[in-house]
Computed example of a mutant assay.
Amino acid sequence: MPTIAPLDLAGHCIDARFIRDVPFFALADGTIHRLDNGHKVTEAHDGLLCAVPSFDGRSLLTGGEDGRICATDLNGQAKELSLIPRKWMTALAAAPNGAIAFASGRSAWVRSADGTVREILHERSVEGVAFAPKGFRLAVARYNGVTLHWPATSGAPTELEWKGAHVSVIFSPDNRFLVTSMQENALHGWRLEDNRHMRMTGYPNKVKSWSWSAKGKWLATSGAPAAIIWPFSGKDGPMGKAPLELGTRGDNLVTAVACHPVEDIVAIGYSDGMILVGRFGDQKEVLLRRGGKSAMSSMNWDTSGHRLVFGTEAGDCGVIDITA
């Protein structure tokens, strides 16, 4: 049976993940909690809005209501990487070359590894940012589509248009597809070789969590009473194909998903705090956690896939060891 080490915190957990196999929990109040030979706390922001791991996995990058972008590592120090006064930093991404991108309002900024910062203005507000797998291209989700930039050059951007509000964006691991989540209850995508559209609809709620499978052949998503898992292995991606549905529950929505780093299985978190794990091949499901105080807001595996860290909207967080 899996074992759970609970951690009860006060507040909305924006991001829960492992940094060098140490559990980190980033809360909306601006604190970052870590379980490293005891419970330790870092006061990183005056209000925290977004968090992603650095590409090398050595620190947690965070953006806040205080205009700061910080990196917090195992020593607990929140190193300030950038400060744009009076800006709420609402989106964040990290690249393999050490660059990071962050956004507020109609601006996106790219901070190179050497510390130089370039601002890129847009006509509409920037809702999401993502680097392509090699880090040379930056996607910016906006109203009515996505803008693709080459931040290291002054070349003209590429515009991918689709009506509606696009709120977050992600590249497939093989760089063949680009997918956005929308303010509507849908995903939209483009096949990048020819910019062909891909529509992924039918969700009863907004998609707020997604995760690529270990080999990038599947994209698991929240937003329905089951984890909706789209196939991306063929030339056309999910076009013309039905998704898998795992962990169907009639009375609760899936609010968080996290694909295993090695196997084709996915952790599925629900609006009542329950967590299941489901296998793609035979659709077998195993209960990892019964319901809690509130909706699951973030989950991530460690590098070995033996432990799952989770956080909820009410702060009942913890670590599940599936090998116990």
Rank of each mutant, 00 (worst) to 15 (best):
V140G: 03
S107I: 04
A130H: 04
R137G: 00
R142W: 02
A91Q: 04
T90S: 12
V110D: 06
A108N: 03
H122F: 10
R106D: 09
S112L: 11
A132G: 11
R142K: 15
V146A: 05
A130Y: 04
P85N: 06
T147N: 08
R111T: 07
K87L: 00
T147C: 10
A132H: 12
A95V: 00
L138C: 08
P96S: 11
W109Y: 13
T116R: 14
E119R: 15
V110S: 05
V146C: 11
L138A: 07
A95Q: 01
M89K: 03
F131T: 07
A95H: 01
E123S: 07
A130P: 03
G98E: 05
H122I: 01
G135H: 13
L138R: 12
G128I: 03
T147K: 14
R86Q: 05
A91L: 03
F102V: 10
L121Q: 10
N97G: 14
R111F: 09
G98F: 12
I120F: 15
S112A: 15
L92Q: 09
F131K: 04
A99G: 07
A141K: 01
L121C: 03
G128F: 06
A139W: 05
K87C: 01
G135D: 09
E127H: 14
V117H: 05
P133Q: 03
R111H: 07
G135T: 06
A113N: 15
I100Y: 11
M89C: 06
G135K: 12
A99Y: 08
G105D: 08
V117T: 15
T147F: 00
N144V: 03
A130V: 08
G115L: 07
N97C: 11
V129P: 05
R118M: 07
G135S: 12
G115H: 14
E119W: 00
L138Q: 11
A130S: 13
P85G: 02
L92G: 10
E123R: 13
S107W: 09
G98K: 05
A101R: 00
K87A: 01
V146K: 06
A108G: 06
P85K: 13
Y143R: 15
A113V: 13
V146I: 15
I100A: 04
S104T: 10
F102I: 09
R118W: 02
A93C: 04
A139E: 01
F131H: 04
S125E: 15
R142F: 02
A139Q: 01
V126W: 10
V117I: 15
T116I: 01
N97F: 04
D114S: 14
L121M: 04
V129F: 05
S107K: 07
Y143F: 14
P133T: 06
K87N: 02
A91E: 03
K134E: 12
L138P: 08
I100E: 05
P133Y: 03
E123Q: 12
Y143A: 14
Y143V: 13
D114A: 12
G128A: 02
R86T: 00
A99P: 06
W109H: 12
R124Q: 14
A113S: 15
I120G: 04
P133E: 01
F102P: 12
A94V: 00
G145V: 11
